[in-house]
Amino acid sequence: MPRLNVIVASTRPGRVGRRIGDWFTAAAARHAAFDEVRLVDLAEVGLPFHDEPHHPSEGVYLHEHTRSWSETTAAADAFVLVMPEYNYGFSAPPKNAIDYLYHEWRHKPVGFVSYGMTSGGLRAVQMIKQVVTTLNMVPVNEAVTVFLRQALDEAGELRPDPGREAAADQMLDQLARLAVALAPLRVPA
């Protein structure tokens, strides 16, 4: 069975992304289509602004933080980006994390759990799809969209939502199928 990394892309203090990432990680573990589901929080990974002197396609990493990020990313067969929308786009931390690597992303499916106030993060997802497809990642059509005004209770916690759970299951089904289908392409020639 494939392995899934759920990447919390927001690093802002006071962010809601970690709560959404924790919810989705639990949903993915319950779904049971993946051998391993790993939550990867970019705030904890702590990548500095891209500081490797070699192009990522060379796979020559001088810094320990890059080698660790490479190992974490290479170990996964599929990804979910839990990401906010800022100013009609995606924020810098996920782009920075993506740009550190090259081969580790190739031929792997990616899903999106987006959130925001007015569009639920949909505009950010549309923008980042151009980035991930350039790396030969395969975005899945199914997605989870969280409209924060409706999703959060007075304490800032996620309200139960059967529709959100169903969307997560549909996306996980698609991710698991594609992770298996794309596996032969990830074998070195």
Rank of each mutant, 00 (worst) to 15 (best):
H55N: 08
D153S: 05
V144D: 00
D77L: 09
G17S: 15
P139W: 09
P53D: 10
Y86P: 06
P139E: 10
R149C: 03
A155Y: 06
L172Q: 03
H54F: 15
L62F: 04
D51L: 14
G163V: 06
R106T: 08
M137N: 11
I20V: 14
I98G: 01
T145D: 00
V113D: 06
V37Q: 05
L158T: 03
G156N: 12
P13Y: 10
V180W: 01
L172E: 01
H107K: 07
E44H: 14
N141I: 08
L135Y: 08
R67M: 09
V6A: 05
E154Q: 15
A32N: 09
G17F: 11
E142Q: 13
L182W: 06
V113C: 06
G121P: 03
L152A: 04
V110C: 10
G116H: 07
A151D: 03
D35Q: 12
G46T: 11
T118L: 11
Q174P: 01
M1Q: 14
A29Q: 12
R164M: 12
L62N: 04
M127P: 00
S114F: 06
D41H: 13
E154A: 10
A183F: 10
P184C: 14
A151P: 03
V80Q: 08
T11F: 09
R106M: 08
K129M: 08
A33H: 10
M127V: 11
N96W: 02
Y100M: 02
L172T: 03
A92I: 08
V6R: 00
Y88K: 10
A33S: 15
V144R: 00
A176M: 04
M137F: 09
Y86N: 12
Y100G: 01
S68G: 06
R12C: 11
L175H: 01
A168H: 00
E58N: 12
P184L: 07
R177E: 02
L175R: 00
N5W: 05
G14T: 15
W105T: 00
S10V: 04
Q174A: 10
I7T: 03
A92C: 03
I98D: 02
V110L: 10
W105H: 00
E64N: 12
S68W: 09
M127N: 13
N96L: 07
Y61Q: 10
Q170D: 05
R3D: 15
V180H: 03
A124W: 12
L101P: 04
S91L: 10
A155G: 10
T25R: 13
Y102P: 02
D77Y: 06
L42Q: 13
L101E: 01
F24A: 06
D41Y: 08
Q130I: 14
